[in-house]
């Protein structure tokens, strides 16, 4: 089967190479990874996959198949949804292989070299807040994975586009300066569009930041902003719960989580208005010693 052109995406703390003969998919990659230079696709990468079209005679519409190491870890998607398939598949494979790091389910932004980690369960408005903070001038490190290096204590960029779902597509898409990829309607997770981090964040993709603030966001329609400081023991527990591999890392995970909780201030933040939340976060960040 024809593999199509291969391109390598340098995300900072990991590299992904993808081959595909699907022209539309490459166009979508150009939109959501606009700053990637043409890099040598034969250098070491952490994840190497192909997105291949299925049989053209399938009655229910042609599909895109996600191949990794001669097998398909996922069911195929409709051909036009090749990008969301690649994004989710790539995330899943990265989560399997990056156990050298503590992987939090978190958005991460930074100013200078001080980082804010926003860990949260799906649906809590984490991606929306992460993207809004980026548009308000913070450097974007990652949305899906908070990559913490247990050896240095730094949080590292994993510069993938943020997958915005349903209502947040409009909320972020209408903010000044926002760049979004095409909307993919009715995927398994609803409507999805990818938010593109800016060139400056891409340029600094190899630069880690020191965690200063941990904010557990919770979006609630109509809520007035409330913000509660969490004791570091609570913060450690919640960081563990919001981690992909806390259990797998065993003692390494425990030490990473507790030292992260000790060196940061942690808050629970409930909000309904983005601007208020951002303003409050700025204030909290200024207060951290």
């Amino acid at each position: 089967m024809r593999q199509g052109p291969c391109r390598m995406l340098d995300l900072g703390s990991a590299r992904i190479a993808v081959s595909s003969p699907i022209a539309r998919f490459h166009e979508h990659l150009d939109i959501v990874y606009p700053h990637q230079q043409t890099e040598d696709p034969t250098t070491f990468v952490d994840v190497r996959v192909s997105v291949l079209p299925g049989a053209p005679w399938r009655i229910w519409g042609r599909q895109a198949h996600f191949w990794s190491e001669a097998s398909q870890p996922f069911e195929p998607y409709p051909l036009q949804n090749a990008l969301p398939l690649f994004e989710w598949g790539g995330n899943w494979l990265l989560a399997q292989r990056l156990n050298a790091y503590l992987l939090l389910h978190a958005g991460v932004v930074a100013r200078d070299d001080g980082a804010i980690i926003l860990p949260a369960a799906p649906g809590s408005g984490k991606s929306t807040l992460t993207c809004a903070l980026h548009l308000a001038g913070w450097r974007f490190l990652s949305d899906e994975f908070g990559v913490v290096d247990p050896a240095s204590g730094l949080v590292l960029p994993l510069l993938k586009p943020a997958a915005l779902k349903n209502r947040s597509i409009e909320v972020i898409g209408t903010l000044p300066g926002a760049t979004l990829g095409p909307v993919f309607p009715n995927t398994r997770k609803g409507d999805v569009a990818h938010f593109v981090p800016d060139r400056d964040s891409f340029t600094h993709r190899a630069r880690g930041a020191k965690p200063r603030l941990v904010i557990f966001p919770r979006f609630r329609e109509g809520a007035t902003l409330t913000c509660t400081r969490l004791p570091s023991a609570d913060s450690a527990m919640r960081l563990g719960l919001n981690s992909f591999n806390y259990q797998t890392l065993g003692p390494v995970g425990f030490h990473a989580v507790t030292s992260l909780a000790r060196q940061t201030h942690a808050y629970e933040l409930e909000y309904s208005i983005l601007d208020e939340a951002i303003e409050h976060i700025e204030k909290l960040f200024a207060e951290v010693p």
Partner: peptide, 15 residues
């Protein structure tokens, strides 16, 4: 990067 992958696999096996 190679050491990271080996470390990752060793940790999963240990778990």
């Amino acid at each position: 990067p190679v050491r990271r992958h080996l470390l990752s696999a060793a940790r999963v096996a240990k778990f």
